[in-house]
Nucleic acid binder design. Structure first.
Lengths: 235, 235
DNA sequence: CGATGATTTGATGGTATTCAAAGTCGGTGG
DNA sequence: CCACCGACTTTGAATACCATCAAATCATCG
C-alpha cells in the first residue's frame, strides 16, 4: 500500500475501490536516496512524479550570493513533485533531508489516471494546491511575522502535518533538520534562528534540539504563533 | 472570446477546436466589481471559479494586528481562483484593485471539462501551478532579497506578465496600485517602500508614480533584481 | 582522536520599523 | 470654481530587529 499515507493525510472520504487500486497501480516502482542527496535539479525535464514513502525532503532555491531559500519541507505521504506533471520541469531543486524512500509515478500513468476518473483528478490536483496554500502561508509568515513567531509557526505546522501520518508522539516529534535549515526556511540567518530558538525555549513554548521538537505548551505556542490550521485543508 | 487572454498567456501550442470551444462554453456568464471591492472572503464555500477579463485583482490575508499580506496580483487572462475547484474554499480573500470584469465558471462545468479532456485538465491544472510557482518566487523574494531588490523584482515580473497579454507599452505599463499595496506585497512598511522606490528612481532603474511604472534601464533593472522569468513557465 | 559540520555566544553595523508631521493629489460639495 | 476632505506620498528622527563578523564550544563520525 504505497499510497496509504497519501490518502490518509488527505482525509479522502470516499474513493472507489477501483480508483484506489488504479492509483496504487500507477506507480512504476520505488527508489531510495541518501541524506542530503539532490533528487531533482531545477529546470531538468521530468517524466515522473515522486511520492515520499519515508524520510524528509526539502524543496529549495539557491541564490547567486550563496543564500538558500527553502520553499517546502515534505513528510511521508506527500507527493513531492506532483506539480511536475502539468509543468514538465521544476523551477526549484529537491533534496533529501534524511535517507528517503520514494515511489515513482510516470507522467503517462498520471495522465491515464486523469482520463480514467474525475474524482482522482480532483484528488491529485487538490494535493498540489494544498502545497500551494502552504507556500502562501509561508509568504505570510516570512512577510509579516517576527522571527520567533515564524519558527513557532513552522513547528506548529509540522506538528499537525506529521500528526496526520502518525509521526508525532504525544507532544513531541522528530524534525531531522539543522538550525541552518530552519533559518533557510524562515528567511533568517542561522545565528538569529539560534537566538530565537533559545527564546522559545526560555518562554516555555517549544524546544528544538538535534532534530527533536518538544512542545512545552501547545496552547500558548499556538497563540504565540498565530497558528490556524485552516490552510492545511484537513477537513 | 472570453478565454482569449487566458490561452494567450499560457502559450498553448495546440488545443483542439473542440476543447477550445468547450472551455469557452463552460462559462456561466460575466460580472463586474467596483475598485477595492472584496470579491471572495476567506473560508466562504465556493461553487464557481473566476476568470479575470479586465482590471487588476489581489489575493491577500489580513493579520490579527492589522497588517495585510498580499499573496498575488492578478492581471487579465488570469484564472484568479481556479484553485477553488479542487479546494472548495479559499484560505485567503480576493479583492478588486481596480474596476474589474470577470467570467464565472461553475465547478460543475470545470469538472465536466476534466471528464471530457485530459489535455484541458492539464492546461487548467498547469495554470494553478504557475500561480504556485509565482507564490514560491515571492517566498524567495521576501525571504532572501533586500527591500529595493524585492520591489524591482516585482516590477520585472509584472512587466513580463502584462507583456504576455499586451498590456505594456514599450518600456512602461500601468500598475494601478498604491505604495501601500506594493509594501503589503513585499512584506515592507509603506514608509520604507517609499524610500526604496526613490532609490530605484535615483539609480535610474525604474520609476513608479501613481500607478504608472516606467522602466528606465531594463538590463540593469533585471540584473539588479536577479530576475529570471523561468518561474513563469512561458515557454 | 583529529576533522568536519553544527551550535552557541559576543560585539557591532545596517536595514527596516515606528512614530510623527507635513505635503500632494483627486474628488466632492458648497 | 474653489475650499475642503480623505487617501496617499514624502520626509525626519529615534528605535528595534536582524545580519554580519569572529571565535569558541559541542557533536558526530570516519
Amino acid at each position: 500500500m504505497i499510497t496509504r499515507l497519501f490518502l490518509q493525510s488527505h482525509r479522502v472520504p470516499a474513493l472507489s475501490a477501483d480508483d484506489s487500486a488504479a492509483l496504487e497501480a500507477a506507480s512504476s516502482g520505488t527508489a531510495s536516496f541518501a541524506a542530503r542527496r539532490i533528487m531533482v535539479r531545477e529546470q531538468t525535464p521530468l517524466d515522473k512524479c515522486t511520492l515520499l514513502l519515508s524520510g524528509f525532503v526539502e524543496r529549495y532555491k539557491d541564490m547567486p550570493d550563496g543564500r538558500r531559500q527553502i520553499l517546502a519541507i515534505h513528510v511521508p505521504g506527500d507527493f513531492v513533485d506532483l506539480h511536475s506533471y502539468p509543468l514538465k520541469r521544476l523551477e526549484h531543486s529537491v533534496a533529501a533531508l534524511t535517507p528517503v524512500t520514494v515511489a515513482s509515478f510516470p507522467h503517462d500513468a498520471v495522465r491515464a489516471l486523469t482520463e480514467r476518473s474525475a474524482t482522482l483528478t480532483e484528488l491529485l490536483w487538490r494535493s498540489t494546491l494544498i502545497d500551494a496554500a502552504i507556500n502562501r502561508e509561508w509568504i505570510v509568515s516570512i512577510g509579516s511575522r517576527g522571527a520567533a513567531v515564524r519558527l513557532a509557526h513552522l513547528f506548529c505546522e509540522m506538528f499537525i502535518r506529521l500528526g496526520c501520518v502518525g509521526m508525532t508522539r504525544d507532544a513531541e516529534f522528530d524534525l531531522p533538520v539543522t538550525q541552518i535549515d530552519l533559518a533557510d526556511a524562515c528567511g533568517l540567518t542561522a545565528v538569529h534562528a539560534n537566538r530565537m530558538l533559545r527564546q522559545l525555549r526560555e518562554r516555555g513554548l517549544v524546544e528544538f534540539r538535534q532534530g527533536l521538537v518538544q512542545i512545552l505548551d501547545w496552547d500558548r505556542l499556538r497563540d504565540f504563533a498565530e497558528f490556524d490550521p485552516a490552510y492545511l485543508f484537513l477537513t
